[in-house]
């Protein structure tokens, strides 16, 4: 699909047409541009790097240079229909505060992250006794920006703690989207946690 990375393609499938969307950590704006063009969304971005911001501005996308830990607090309640956090939550200082803000800003949040429960990660730790380096986790431990890695099962607990429930649960493995799976089913949940390189969740705000 349109050359998007598999986890971004999976997120794109979760976005309703015409929605107001905030993409937190939008990078060079590839996903937002795709969503504006194909889904007719009203998109906004938040991005830390100047290179990413300028790439977005060049695409004509509205993007604010800032970071998720500091700047989400300034977005009003329900300003958006959907918030996207792709491959970013593991790099935030306070993932719980970030997800809580996302569910305040929008009733739904699409979140993807590298799954630390994947069997290859476990193998690297158990058999080799070393931190994993893989396609999903390409940087060595001393230079990674990832400071809050978690497994797909861990995230389910966080979503619960932040007042959310899982609407759709997907994983990405071998460049393909698998699922949806039922996170309430222990077997499906365990299998997804073992086989997913990336996890992709649509988290819905429970009634306040």
């Amino acid at each position: 699909m349109s050359g998007l990375r598999a986890d971004l393609a999976a997120i794109a499938e979760l976005v309703p047409a015409g929605a107001r969307v905030l993409d937190v950590g939008c990078g060079d704006g590839r996903l937002l541009e795709h969503l504006e063009r194909v889904r007719g969304v009203e998109g906004r971005g938040l991005e830390l790097s100047i290179a990413g911001v300028n790439a977005c501005v060049a695409r004509g996308l509205p993007v604010v240079q800032g970071d998720a830990d500091r700047d989400l607090a300034f977005y009003p309640d329900d300003a958006f229909d959907l918030a996207i956090l792709s491959d970013t939550i593991q790099a935030t200082q306070n993932p719980r505060a970030v997800l809580t803000h996302l569910l305040r800003i929008a009733p739904r949040a699409a979140v993807s992250f590298p799954n630390f429960g994947h069997w290859r990660v476990r193998w690297s730790l158990v058999a080799r006794g070393r931190m994993p380096v893989s396609d999903a986790l390409p940087a060595s431990w001393w230079e990674t920006r990832n400071i809050h890695l978690c497994t797909s099962n861990d995230f389910l607990d966080l979503a619960e703690a932040c007042g959310g429930r899982i609407g759709t649960a997907l994983v990405v493995a071998g460049g393909k989207v698998r699922g949806p799976f039922d996170p309430a089913n222990p077997l499906a949940r365990g299998l997804a946690n073992l086989t997913g390189e990336h996890a992709v969740f649509l988290v819905e705000r429970r009634a306040r």
Binding site: I50, V57, P62, V64, Q65, G66, F74, A79
Partner: peptide, 21 residues
């Protein structure tokens, strides 16, 4: 300047904010 960008965001305007190092 960030205050301006935040207000524009709150107003729902199409705003980019660039902070040059």
């Amino acid at each position: 300047n960030r205050e301006i960008a935040r207000a524009l965001n709150a107003a729902g305007a199409r705003v980019s904010y660039v902070e040059i190092d």
